[in-house]
Design a binder for these strands. Structure first.
Lengths: 300, 300
DNA sequence: TAAAAATACTCCATAGGTATTTTAT
DNA sequence: ATAAAATACCTATGGAGTATTTTTA
């Protein structure tokens, strides 16, 4: 099998049209270069150079070979460039999954800083439910996913980076104005509305309230927190939302009130999920540190 | 420096998504393949595969690397194809120089057979005077040249493949009809017209007639045999043409006659001229053998 | 526990270096 | 005679093999 070294030596000879000069340029002895060229010619059965003690000429076949060799060399150089790119953090594009109850609320808070620190970082986001994302991470379709724990991640690794509580959201008219905290036993559970099955937020909310299931008739099959909130505005019931969603869902002039859920917490923990031997762990940790920093800035 | 072997092993792993199967496909041990992949990853600082005892996954960086590796592999394959092509004769294009007093008369007689035997043979022809062609051969611009000897080819190699005599061409009206041979002393030298200086045909004609120079006033600066012949038709004088040009220059219904020049011959010898260490000598010898065969067919 | 990759260790092939010879001008 | 490539010869590195260990599903 011919080698890249042989090709690079041949290219050096083409460049210098002189074996010794080419050998110097390659930082090898004239002997080494000469035997490498000879061996290349022998292996391919192609005379690349005509040479005597005074001049070196490229044969017609040699021209073709050297053209191809040049192209190969460029692509090998590309590999080394890729290597360099890879050594600098966050330069390879990442596919990141995120669940719908985290993405719209977390990412606007943290990604601007990521873009600021790593302007060239390319990020492809996939929004889906936890079980889908876990599968995609396992298959390698995703580099990682951002989920809410607790969740059964079956052998994947979790890097937790944030934890938060739920807030009970109700209409002003249905709530004592001085209420600071509320416990699940003080709620009208039958008026509580949550996302439809499959969304982990529902499970976490139920768990926070120490409930097995919601036996209210309020299963409106809501698929987003936003529509749930709209229903609260319409006085159809109350709901529970994670803290990081509050600023987007409830504005100051809103007719809604958000009251901290007074149950032992934290009610959900946010984490990056990766395969145990994923290559870009460093990148994930870097992202995580930025996320943490930004979230801490917001609460302080 | 990374090696083609490493890249081919990586491609095999991508194909089989399994180290042992890939190793088998490469006819190496699992150990050898494993260390080669590991070394590649170490050298580039890129994890190409995520692997455990149950599954192999390609990393995002790995995808990029493998794409480039695939492209490199294809081009290396091209080199081996080139090698195969090169081992079969007359498959690499050749640049051949030929002088004006040979090309138009010789090539139509021999190239059809070359094309017949080697339909894929690509041939680039350059027509110029001997000294130009010799220089081009020396510089490597031409693979070889077809010249008429004697000629000073200064260290180049000559493969002679044909020899021929000159014929004296005159108008019917100026020549005894039963004349079969003519010697130079029987010619009216002062009426003899030859090509202008630089054309070796003039030198050969003079040499054949044992003349130093043509002191006729007939130096019309003719640059082609054809125009010379037209002048003979116009009864401006006579000329000498090589045998292989007769059939094209003098047709049966022509008012010209061609008489063999009765001087010790041969009057010129045709040869391929190559550099002593030219790589495609085999191809030249092959061409030469076809030329010889065709020319012999024509005279018999 | 079993399957697969990684590792330990040994051996040989090959690349590289120095010194010398050959070759062609 | 000289300049340059080829060759001879020795050394060291690296790649390959076998056998074994580690890992994790």
């Amino acid at each position: 099998m011919i080698s890249l070294k042989q090709l690079s030596y041949a290219l050096a000879v083409q460049e210098h049209m002189h074996f010794k000069k080419a050998a110097d340029a390659c930082n090898v002895s004239q002997s080494a270069l000469s035997t490498a060229i000879t061996e290349l010619e022998k292996q391919l059965g192609i005379q690349v150079f005509e040479r005597n003690n005074k001049q070196v000429l490229v044969t017609p076949s040699g021209q073709i070979l050297l053209k191809t060799a040049q192209s190969i060399k460029l692509q090998v150089d590309d590999l080394y460039k890729l290597s360099q790119m890879n050594k600098a953090p966050l330069t390879t594009p990442m596919n990141i999954g995120v669940i719908p109850t985290i993405g719209p609320y977390l990412l606007p808070k943290v990604l601007p800083q990521v873009r600021k620190e790593f302007p060239d970082f390319k990020l492809h986001l996939v929004e889906d439910q936890s079980h889908v994302l876990v599968e995609k991470v396992r298959k390698g379709d995703l580099d990682c996913a951002i989920l809410a724990l607790p969740y059964d991640i079956e052998g994947l690794m979790a890097f937790e980076f944030w934890k938060e509580d739920f807030y009970w959201v109700c209409h002003k008219d249905e709530c004592p104005s001085n209420l600071q905290e509320i416990s699940s036993k003080d709620m009208q559970i039958e008026r509580l509305m949550l996302l439809k099955d499959g969304h982990c937020l529902k499970d976490h909310a139920l768990a926070a309230c120490s409930l097995e299931k919601l036996n209210s008739n309020a299963d409106f099959n809501s698929t987003s927190l936003n529509t749930l909130i709209q229903m609260v505005v319409g006085k159809l019931g109350t709901t529970l939302v994670p803290e990081m969603a509050l600023d987007q869902l409830i504005h100051t002039e809103s007719e809604l009130r958000a009251v901290h859920l007074n149950e032992p917490g934290p009610h959900r923990r946010l984490a990056f999920i990766i395969r145990p031997n994923y290559g870009g762990t460093m990148n994930v940790e870097l992202l995580m540190s930025i996320f943490k920093k930004q979230l801490n800035n917001l609460v302080s």
